[in-house]
Computed example of a mutant assay.
Amino acid sequence: MSQPGFPGHITTSTVYSSTRVNTSIRWDPSYIQTLPGVLKIVQIVCSFIGFICIEASGLASHTRGGFFNFVALVAVLFTGILLIFYLLHIIEKTFRIPWLMVEFAFCAIWAFGFFAVSIMAATYGSDAYLVAAFFGFCCMVAYAFDAFLKYSALKRGEIAQGERTAQKQTNVTDVY
């Protein structure tokens, strides 16, 4: 008995995909209850607490503190804007923008950034810097996990918000 793809058989595959989105802007707080929503909240809160620790230390003008605060503030702003976009379904309205790729790149870069600034803060020797480093490492883990989730979603061909369904139809034709 021949296997599909062997001589005597022609195998054709057709993939059908459809994207279903609602392009109206609307408030949807249920996003906060999803894993990506919880990760965004954790990222914002930990980044902001780390920023406050550096600022309250009295040593915020040190170069290490400046680097940490830059990474933390950009994280709070970018992630906060993304969270608002998801809550208002602006991501779904602009589904043609590769949001998963944008988020994957940002999360991967910021995971590395938090790793670097957290090590610098941890080796400074100030208690406030140590606490900031702890929250920085928490951010690193959250951003790395989020990057992994975005990468996995990209590999599966998903979109950031809305639905994309794909169906695969395989036909085998005997040729003699």
Rank of each mutant, 00 (worst) to 15 (best):
I41S: 05
T123C: 07
H89E: 01
G58C: 09
F67S: 10
T34C: 10
A122W: 11
I90V: 05
P4C: 06
G8M: 00
R26H: 14
F137S: 14
V76H: 03
I25W: 03
T11D: 15
S30E: 09
A121C: 03
C107W: 00
P98C: 10
F70Q: 08
R96G: 14
I10W: 08
S57E: 11
V38G: 04
A116P: 05
Y129K: 09
R64S: 08
F114G: 00
V74Q: 15
F112M: 04
A116L: 09
Y16M: 05
G125P: 14
I32A: 06
L88S: 03
C53M: 11
G113S: 00
I91P: 01
I91Y: 01
V42E: 01
S61T: 13
Y129P: 11
A128C: 06
V102M: 10
C53N: 14
F70W: 14
S17R: 14
W27Q: 12
R20K: 12
G8V: 00
F78M: 11
I52M: 14
Q43L: 01
R64Q: 12
M140P: 05
G50Y: 07
I49A: 09
L83M: 09
F68G: 10
F106W: 12
G37H: 03
F70N: 06
G37C: 06
L83D: 02
W27V: 13
N69V: 07
P29I: 02
F51R: 11
F104P: 04
F70L: 13
A133F: 07
G58H: 14
S30C: 06
C139W: 02
M101A: 15
S2R: 08
S126H: 14
N69I: 06
G113I: 02
H9V: 15
F51I: 11
L35F: 15
G65Y: 13
F48K: 09
F104G: 09
I90L: 06
V45M: 13
H89N: 01
R96A: 14
G37V: 01
V131G: 08
I91S: 00
A111S: 08
Q33K: 05
A60T: 08
F70K: 10
L82H: 12
F95E: 05
Y16F: 13
A72D: 08
V76Y: 01
I91D: 02
F67C: 08
I84V: 15
G80E: 02
L130S: 13
T14Y: 14
A121Q: 02
R26S: 14
T23D: 12
L73A: 08
T14A: 13
R96S: 15
P29F: 04
S126A: 13
I41R: 04
T23K: 13
L88P: 01
V74C: 15
P7L: 09
V71K: 03
L82N: 13
F70A: 10
I49C: 12
L87Y: 04
F115V: 03
A105P: 04
I97T: 11
A111M: 02
H9S: 15
H9T: 15
T63A: 05
V131P: 10
F67P: 11
L35A: 10
F104I: 07
G125F: 15
